[in-house]
Amino acid sequence: MLADARIVLREQFLKADVGITGANFLIAETGQTVIVTNEGNGDLTQLLPRVHIALAGIEKVVPTLEDTMTIMRVLARSATGQEMSSYTTFSAGGRRKGDLDGPEAFHVVLLDNGRSKLLGSPTEDILRCIRCGCCLNACPVYGKIGGHAYGSTYSGPVGAVLTPSLAGLSEAHHLPNASSLCGRCEEVCPMRIPIPKMLRHFREEEVASGMAPASARRGIALWAWFASRPGLYRTMTSLTTGVLSLFGRKRGRFSSLPMAGAWTATRDLASPQGKSFQSQWARRSKS
């Protein structure tokens, strides 16, 4: 499969008039664009055709070469566990006098597409993302549902922040909810992006702006009313679990339940197995 791809694509690289690449970094100090690959596809794309066009988001700008190298030291390690990707290429223009190869023209397109409006916003820190994919590997939700479920270019925890940030919360307000807020993404992030904090921000905004379904908002309001009255909350929960364990004792699970249809439509609900944590704690403390 690989050998075939090499033969077919090599022909394309040699024939093309224009090569379009992205850029991992844009260096303010030198005006260089940087691409990082393991395959070498990016290099053939930018070396062989007559024109090289690099298209990159404005957040890719890094001040100096030294800053770039600091980031390079964490990029591949966080992405694939390599110390360094096979090819890191710095480009500073078109073919020069005497050069035997390289593109005749070199054009860089800087793309904003919603990035500048994130500056000064609660999700500003996501602009530091270097797309290593480390948070995807660490995310228990991503591990279960996979990338396509996120419905956009960027998946996993970073996608759950980036997609609503760039496309608008109304387009993707379900994404920040697809998280257990366990915090592993922030723990492993080499750029120290506080992803869970941003997911919580979007959840608040979702409720505040009325995007969350009315039933969900009413349900949470009801829960909050009980939760702020501990005595009543404990009575109600022990009553509910008591009733559920009584009815579910025989099978140990429920295939259908009133008000929990969305859950039981695809899987059973386990029956409560005994007293609540708090009541057990209270009993043990006494004895």
Binding site: M1, L2, A5, R6, L9, R10, F13, T30, Q32, N38, E39, G40, N41, D43, L44, L47, T80, Q82, E83, M84, S85, S86, Y87, T88, T89, F90, S91, A92, G93, G94, R95, R96, D99, G102
Partner: peptide, 28 residues
């Protein structure tokens, strides 16, 4: 100030894209 292209090369061309198995000699 600097050469037109600076290539930093660490090992051979490789990919893990096909069934997550490491294969070398992709395009480079």
């Amino acid at each position: 100030a600097l050469p037109r292209t600076v290539n930093m090369i660490t090992g051979t061309s490789r990919t893990g894209d096909i069934e997550q198995t490491l294969q070398t000699g992709v395009h480079g």
